[in-house]
C-alpha cells in the first residue's frame, strides 16, 4: 500500500466529525461578545453558554439567569 492510501485511511480512521472544529472557541467568544455587548452587564446575572450538537454542526444557546436569550447556529 502506498503512503498516500495509508494517509487517506488514517484520515478516515481519525474521525473528527464529533469533535469541535478548529477555531470554534474563538468563534463562540466573538459571536457571544458581539451579541451581548451593550446589554449584558458584568456581575448582574449568570451567563451560561450551552453547546448543542445539531447533527450536522453545532449550536450555542446563550442563557441569562437560566433564561434563553439567543441561539447561535455556528457551523
Amino acid at each position: 500500500m502506498k503512503a498516500a492510501e495509508l494517509t487517506m485511511k488514517m484520515q478516515q480512521t481519525l474521525v473528527r466529525d464529533k469533535s469541535l472544529p478548529e477555531g470554534f472557541g474563538k468563534m463562540i467568544l466573538d459571536e457571544t461578545d458581539r451579541l451581548l455587548s451593550g446589554f449584558f452587564e458584568y456581575g448582574k446575572g449568570d451567563l451560561t453558554l450551552r453547546l448543542i450538537p445539531t447533527g450536522r454542526g453545532w449550536a450555542v444557546e446563550i442563557l441569562l439567569d437560566a433564561v434563553r436569550v439567543k441561539n447561535l447556529k455556528l457551523l
Binding site: 500500500m1 503512503a3 498516500a4 488514517m10 484520515q11
Partner: peptide, 15 residues
C-alpha cells in the same frame, strides 16, 4: 520509498 506515512503527517492528522 513512499510506502509509509511520515511522522510529520501523522502529527498533522492527529493535530
Amino acid at each position: 520509498r513512499g510506502e509509509a506515512v511520515p511522522p510529520e503527517k501523522i502529527a498533522q492528522l492527529m493535530r
